[in-house]
Write a protein that binds this DNA or RNA. Structure first.
Lengths: 199, 199
DNA sequence: CCTACCGATCGGTAGG
DNA sequence: CCTACCGATCGGTAGG
């Protein structure tokens, strides 16, 4: 968003800096991106960045934590309302694809680089990922308990199947594709459920 | 495999070097691993590596191409025999999990770093990935054509679901887990098929 | 495989 | 935000 991603730009805010870093990190990796590349893309000298940031790693942390928070906030919203297990599972997957769609570059950085943060941040992200997965597990267990899903279904594996498909979308999803984020997530849920729904 | 991964070791072959680099690349990323780290792990000076290799990138290329080849060889073997579409799909997924199991660190390097190779290598890997996916698509299309799988099934999405789950396993699979590679892949196929099989 | 070293570049700082 | 620069480290080489 915001201003240019190459050549020179005018007003440079912290947000512009994070946007540019997000694009570069997603394309070249965190370790493969230098602070000079970020400065070049903003049209400033590399030393000038340090009036906005204290370190390169701080920028990575900001990107990763914001994505993790966005995934989690959406998952909480998807499961807190009423609705059948089937509807909630659909909402969870729709949220996931929505985040991937809206924040594609940041999501790539999140998946590829979160393990490279310091151990405090890694512990925080790990806890958030666990809660995120638990929203899926809870919904499927509910469906099994209510009798809507087949008894004896391997809940963990069913969740792993649909959640893996969601997690993997950042590798191939593009807005120029033939399907909308909703169509993709609904399709994943439908195929998974036809194996889980009692018949 | 081979010799030590830390401290000093004795005989150092090209294989040892690649093994050590594979472990380090998988843990710290390619750009985050220095040739001195590789040399330290082998117990030699960094300059000494260059009697075995011509560049750091050559080592990455070797790792990535060998994994891509192993995935593809297994997929060809899984689809060339007789067997129903269901059996072949199971064989494809079993092969995938088998490679992840046997070559875990190398597989991690493959997924995380293949895009960082030069464009010739990226083109080669892209073609191999396309063929790999086509083995899955072919098997599912066969199942739909023969009437074993539901008509009107979205073949692309069903393949994407099960293949994404396979692709994602490198992120969480460990030998210390409760399930074998066969159990995991069979479970993925079963859940996917119960949504595809005519009933 | 070692010693010794190279030019380039890294993230980051000082002082305007 | 710039100029000027820092110590450290990078991948790689020469010549044993």
């Amino acid at each position: 968003m915001s201003t240019a991603a190459s050549g020179k730009s005018k007003r440079n805010s912290y947000e512009d800096l994070v946007d540019v870093a997000t694009t570069l990190f997603s394309e070249r990796g965190y370790a493969g991106t230098t602070v000079r590349m970020i400065a070049d893309a903003l049209g400033v000298q590399s030393g000038s960045l340090y009036s906005h940031i204290s370190s390169k790693e701080e920028v990575l942390k900001r990107i990763v934590l914001s994505v993790a928070q966005e995934f989690l906030d959406g998952a909480r919203a998807a499961t807190e309302g009423e609705g059948s297990p089937e509807e909630r599972l659909r909402a969870l997957c729709r949220n996931h694809l929505s985040v991937v769609d809206r924040r594609q570059a940041a999501v790539t950085v999140y998946y590829d680089e979160w393990r490279k943060l310091d151990e405090v941040a890694v512990a925080e992200i790990t806890a958030q990922r666990r809660e995120y997965e638990q929203h899926f597990v809870g919904v499927v267990e509910e469906g099994v308990a209510s009798g809507a899903f087949v008894k004896g279904a391997d809940v963990r594996m069913a969740v792993l199947l649909v959640l893996s498909a969601c997690n993997w979308t950042y590798q191939w999803y593009t807005r120029r594709g033939p399907m909308t984020p909703e169509e993709i997530s609904d399709s994943f849920v439908e195929i998974t459920l036809k194996g889980l729904l009692r018949r």
